[in-house]
Amino acid sequence: MSNFTELTQAFINLDEEKVYGLVQKKIAAGEDPVGIIKECNEGMTEIGKLFEQNEYFLSELIMSGEIFKSIMAKLEPMLGDVQQENEPSKGTVVIGTVKEDIHDIGKDIVVSMLRGTGYEVVDLGVDVPADKFVAAAKETGAKLVGLSCLLNFTFPELKKVVDELDAAGLRDTVKVAIGGAPCNEEVRKFAGADYYAKDAAAAVSICKEIYQ
């Protein structure tokens, strides 16, 4: 049996009214906002797990983000100078949708899953040219660059990013993973990438492998 707090459990159940009610009660009782956030964070982590296990789907993931945002909007002004004690990051990942492709749904899921499992994610957004990936990898020292795409005309662009990382002398230290609907092993080989992530859960496993 799980031993989540009442708030965490309500959050996992995505019971909006109950979550907001409990948060309100805690605020009124003068509880530390950092603690409240921590309880919600635990809910987010559990929801990520449920998503990986196909218990939860996209609507639950989006809903949890929405609830979390509302709570943060309420609590953030109360935080003042209090430093949130962040758990140390497990590692840094640079991620983006490649040039000329503007799709972000899949990428955003991966970003939220990686953040939820403790990685620091540098999200470059969509339509990202190869040199931006290279610059970000250099700047952050990330050991993994994740390339997302939805459209199959982007295969040469995937390869271009890998080639430019190579040209910048980063290929020994930076691994490349690709993901998105048109990707598969054949595309990975063509692009010269190290990994093909078939879904968000696979992306998390790849990070675990690299940053173990």
Binding site: L58, E60, M63
Partner: peptide, 10 residues
Amino acid sequence: LRGIMLDVRR
């Protein structure tokens, strides 16, 4: 997509 995903729950 975002809107509909919230609607199916809310």
